[in-house]
Every structure is written in C-alpha cells, then in structure tokens.
C-alpha cells in the first residue's frame, strides 16, 4: 500500500458517496446512467469473488464489501425507489450493454493469466471497468444541464483512475516482478476516456460556469 493507491481508493469511495448523497438528499438520479451503475455492480461481483477464498487484509475486504453494497444500493434506488426512479433519464440512457459486455468477455477468454473461471471473471472485470463509464459519458453529452454533483461524481472517478496510474508507476519502480500488463493497458484506456471530460470540466471550472459538454 502506498500513498497514491490510498488516495485512489479514497477518491473512488468519495465518488460513490457523492452519488449516494445526491440520490438520497435530492431524491433524484437525473443525469446518472443506470447502465454505468449496473456495469459497475457487475464489475465488483466478478472481481470480488475472491472474498470467498482469499484474504489479503481487513482494509481490502472491508473496501470490497463496501463497494459491493454501495453499488447495489445505487442500482436499487434507481430501479425500485418510487420517487427516485421517476427522475431516471430512461430515454437518453440508451447505450447497449451487449456492446460493452460481449467484447470484454471475449477478450477475457482470450487474454488472461490462467484459463480458470475465477481468473477469467477477474480479467473480464478489469476490461469491463475500463469501459463501464461510457454510458455515463454519452448520457452527459446528451444532457443540456449537468448538475454539479453529477459533474463532481465523474471528476472524482477520474481522480481515482489518475491516482491508480501513479500507484502502478510507483509499484513498477519499487516492486520486483510487478508486470501487470492487463491491468495497465486497461487502466490507461479507462483513464484516457476521462481526458475529454476533464478538459471541459477544467474549462467550466475556470470560468466558474456550469458544466456543459459540446454535442
């Protein structure tokens, strides 16, 4: 564990807290993609199966359970809460799951460290996490007025990715045999997807304006 990794995890946790806070306090999920949230829930389920058979640290297990619980809580609010679900932009959130899940699954079957069920699912979760933000980015591009909490949620997720890359660079420099090319390539792709968003986020922040993405 290094400082970059800890910062990354904290930004990740903070992003989820901001989203939950937005949903609970405003009773609205306007601007949030249910597709992205369900993909994240799937990512966590596939990746954290190791909760059942391996133990790394109390911190790790605690965070894994927290991510799982919060992901399902968000999905539950957006799907089933009487008030919240009415604010969901169903017509705008049209990204097809299959376009993301199928290629990731195929890739995980071909490119993995070992061909076992848990290993393929773990690899699948790494690939899927890299692209799971796409429905959210597409939804934001379609939305005229992006509220601050939604913009901050995505910015915090981007910060989490950024710190994880610093963490990998640090681990590459300090640990022997740290050659995690599957994680690196997926991670860099994932972070690059945020680059465009961050550009406009910074512009609007500087101008002290509400975030608006160009069509």
């Amino acid at each position: 564990m290094n400082l970059f990794r800890l910062c990354g995890d904290m930004f990740h946790l903070l992003s989820i807290m901001v989203l939950l806070l937005k949903i609970r306090a405003t009773r609205s999920c306007r601007g949030i993609s249910l597709k992205t949230q369900e993909l994240y829930a799937l990512v966590f389920v596939c990746r954290y199966l190791d909760l059942f058979y391996s133990f790394i640290s109390v911190y790790n297990s605690f965070m894994k359970v927290t991510f799982l619980a919060t992901a399902f809580s968000i999905v539950r609010y957006m799907r089933y809460d009487k008030v919240v679900k009415q604010t969901y932009d169903r017509e705008q959130d049209t990204f097809r799951y299959v376009f993301l899940i199928a290629p990731c699954l195929l890739l995980a079957l071909v490119l993995n460290h070992r061909f076992t069920l848990t290993e393929v699912l773990w690899t699948f979760s790494i690939y899927l996490e890299a692209v799971a933000i796409l429905p959210q980015l597409v939804l934001m591009q379609r939305t005229q007025n992006i509220d601050n909490l939604t913009a901050n949620y995505v910015a915090l997720l981007g910060a989490y990715r950024g710190f994880y890359i610093l963490n990998w660079i640090y681990r590459f420099a300090t640990e022997r045999h740290y050659r995690q090319w599957i994680v690196w390539i997926s991670g860099v792709i994932q972070t690059a997807l945020y680059a465009d968003f961050f550009f406009y986020y910074a512009l609007c922040w500087k101008a002290n304006k509400r975030l608006q993405l160009p069509a």
């Binding site: 990794r5 995890d9 990740h12 190791d50 391996s54 790394i56 640290s57 790790n60 965070m63 894994k64 991510f67 460290h113 773990w122 994880y164 963490n167 640990e175 045999h177 740290y178 995690q180 994680v183």
Partner: peptide, 10 residues
C-alpha cells in the same frame, strides 16, 4: 506471490 501481487488492489 505473483497472483497475490496482482490482486491486492481493488
């Protein structure tokens, strides 16, 4: 050990 190192992140 390689696997442990690979999976100690979230």
């Amino acid at each position: 050990n390689d696997e442990w190192q690979r999976k100690d992140e979230l």
